[in-house]
Amino acid sequence: MLTKKGAATRLRIIDAAASEIREHGVNATTLDDVCRRSGTGKSQLFHYFPDGKEELLLAVARREADRVLEDQQPHLGRLTTWQAWESWRDAVVERYRRQGVHCPLGILITELGRTTPAAQEVTGQLLAQWEAQVRAGIETMRESGNVHADVDPGSTAMAIITAIQGGVTILMSTGSARYLESALDLCLDHLRWTGAAPRGSRNPTPL
C-alpha cells in the first residue's frame, strides 16, 4: 500500500502523462516527457509503473474515466425532474466548453480507448456506468409520468451518451460547443415530447 506521499507522486505522474497525451497524442508521448513534466526520474516512474508505458496508459485511462463521471456530479445522480435534467445539460456543456480540445472524454475514447484492449475495457466500463445513471434518471421520469411509458430507458440513455460524444468529438476538432449543445438539446426535447409537457416546450414547469 502506498504512503500518502507515494500516492501523491503516482497521481502526479498520471496527471503529467494525461496532459502530455492531450497536447501531443499517445504515440508522441514518451516516458522522458512524462518524467520531465512530473518532476520525477525514470526510477520513480518504473517504481509505480513496473511495466512501463502500457501500465501508465491504463492508469491514465482509469483516471480520465473517473473524471468524466466526477465532472457531471452531483447533477448526473439527480435526474429526477426536468429542472434537474436542464442543470445537468448546462453542466455538461459548460464543462466541455471550458475544457475545449483537452477534455478527458475525448482523450479517453479517441486516444486511449484504441490503444490497448485494457484501455478499451476501461472505456467500456465508463460507458456502462454512465449509461446506468442516465437510464436511472429516465426510469424515474417515466415512473412519475413525465416520460411516456413506451420509452426504452436503456436505448435512450445510449443515444444521449452517443450524442454527447459526437458533439465532444466535433468540439475537439473545431473548438465549437454548438454541435454538442444542439445534439443534447434534441435528445432532451425528445424526452419532453414523449411526456406530459407541451410539444416544443424548452422549460416545462419543474416537479
Rank of each mutant, 00 (worst) to 15 (best):
L112Q: 12
D185A: 11
L207V: 13
D185W: 07
I107R: 02
L31Q: 08
G100Y: 11
G77A: 07
Y96N: 15
A177H: 15
E70Y: 09
T3Y: 13
E143V: 02
R199I: 12
L171T: 03
T3G: 15
A28T: 00
Y96I: 08
A163K: 07
D152Y: 07
V68Q: 04
R97C: 08
H148F: 10
R78T: 15
W130D: 12
T29R: 01
A61N: 09
A59E: 08
L184Q: 07
E20Y: 02
T29M: 03
E181W: 08
A196L: 11
K53T: 02
A128P: 00
I160V: 14
S38Q: 02
T3F: 14
A61I: 04
G6T: 06
G41N: 08
A118F: 04
L79Q: 10
E23K: 04
R202W: 13
E64I: 01
R142D: 04
G113K: 08
S19N: 10
W82D: 15
R22C: 00
L186K: 05
P153D: 03
T140I: 07
E86C: 07
L127E: 03
V134M: 14
T162Q: 13
G137Y: 06
G52N: 12
L126R: 06
R98D: 10
W85K: 09
Q133E: 15
G195K: 00
V34G: 00
P198M: 06
A91H: 04
E181A: 07
R199Y: 14
G175Y: 10
E55V: 02
K5W: 05
A197P: 09
C187N: 14
G39S: 04
A61L: 15
C103T: 14
A118S: 12
P204L: 04
Q125C: 06
A28Y: 01
L171M: 10
G113Y: 05
G106Q: 07
G154F: 06
D90G: 01
L180C: 14
I138N: 04
S144P: 02
